[in-house]
């Protein structure tokens, strides 16, 4: 029907203006995105060599392998911290709490607040609290905890939304069969909501991979495979930053940036496909 409307109705000049405005914006937006991507790819791809993936970083060979290892460790530890915390909080908010109670309000406000804080403020806090006050020093652990707090609202929100999208009939059916609330949540509500939860987790992964400001003061800047969680380290994004700031490694910086982009694109595509599966399964 919309197609008919678009074709049949006569348009006034101002409608052409609106049409123009919308299509220009669309074109501009896509153009900018493509430009940025091609910009990085063109400068980086020629400089990608297998040696970039060797195990150690030397001044002759700016390997990014230690950075990849550190990034993976960071993703794992941060998610281990944030996901249970976030999912359980969301479960509490949706399944257990009385709607509109003060506690729920407090958590909602808290979550919104956290979501709005700039990453540099997280970095500042992480430095003061984890690195300094708790005495962990600049370390992967400090970085992970800082990032965990940062992605917490994201996980809470996406889990909440997917739990809410499970129709109440599931819950009522389970209750009427005699199951307790815990069993209901665990066996009946959570499983179909999982794809949505995963989508949120993957979004969080994307944020973790791309983050720099929050980590600059908390994770240190040493480029090697970390020995333990208290070592300093460098994630891929930080490595790009550091390489670009040394005089002689600009090309390697672009090459590393390409790898980073590939990682981000991969994570994004994963998230999209999971979201699609979720939409289908709830139909």
């Amino acid at each position: 029907m919309e197609l008919l409307i678009k074709k049949i109705k006569r348009k006034k000049p101002i409608d052409w203006l609106r049409f123009l405005a919308v299509w220009t914006s669309a074109f501009l937006t896509v153009f900018i995105l493509v430009y940025i991507l091609v910009f990085v790819l063109i400068r980086g791809i020629p400089h990608i060599k297998p040696s970039l993936f060797s195990f150690t970083y030397t001044i002759e060979n700016q390997s990014l392998f230690p950075a990849i290892v550190t990034t993976v460790i960071m993703i794992v530890v941060t998610l281990v911290l944030a996901v249970p915390l976030g999912v359980f909080t969301a479960i509490y908010l949706v399944e257990y709490a009385k709607r509109g109670s003060k506690f729920v309000q407090a958590i909602r406000t808290t979550s919104e607040t956290l979501a709005g804080i700039p990453s540099i403020v997280f970095g500042l806090f992480g430095y003061i609290f984890f690195a300094d006050w708790l005495g962990w020093g600049k370390s992967i652990l400090a970085g992970c905890f800082t990032l965990a707090i940062m992605v917490l609202p994201l996980i809470i929100r996406t889990t909440e939304e997917s739990l809410k999208s499970i129709p109440d009939s599931y819950r009522e059916g389970s209750f009427s069969l005699g199951a307790g609330r815990l069993r209901t949540v665990w066996r009946v509500v959570l499983p179909p909501a999982l794809p949505g939860v995963f989508a949120g987790i993957i979004l969080a992964m994307g944020r973790i991979v791309g983050e720099t400001a929050a980590l600059v003061f908390t994770i240190g800047s040493v480029i090697k495979i970390p020995d333990n969680l208290f070592s300093q380290g460098r994630t891929l994004a930080l490595h790009v930053l550091q390489l670009s700031s040394q005089g002689h490694y600009r090309n390697e910086a672009y090459a590393t940036a390409v790898i980073l982009l590939v990682l981000v694109v991969g994570i994004n595509m994963l998230s999209t496909s999971i979201e699609r599966k979720f939409k289908e399964s709830t139909k």
Binding site: S244, S245, Q246, G247, H248, Y249, R250
Partner: peptide, 27 residues
């Protein structure tokens, strides 16, 4: 500018630029 390489980049790209760097980082 807070990084050596950024200084080099800015001077390289701006005809009218002037700055200072460590001799060891000259290119």
């Amino acid at each position: 500018i807070s990084e050596t390489n950024e200084i080099l980049t800015k001077v390289e790209e701006n005809e009218y630029a002037i700055s200072y760097v460590s001799v060891g980082s000259l290119s």
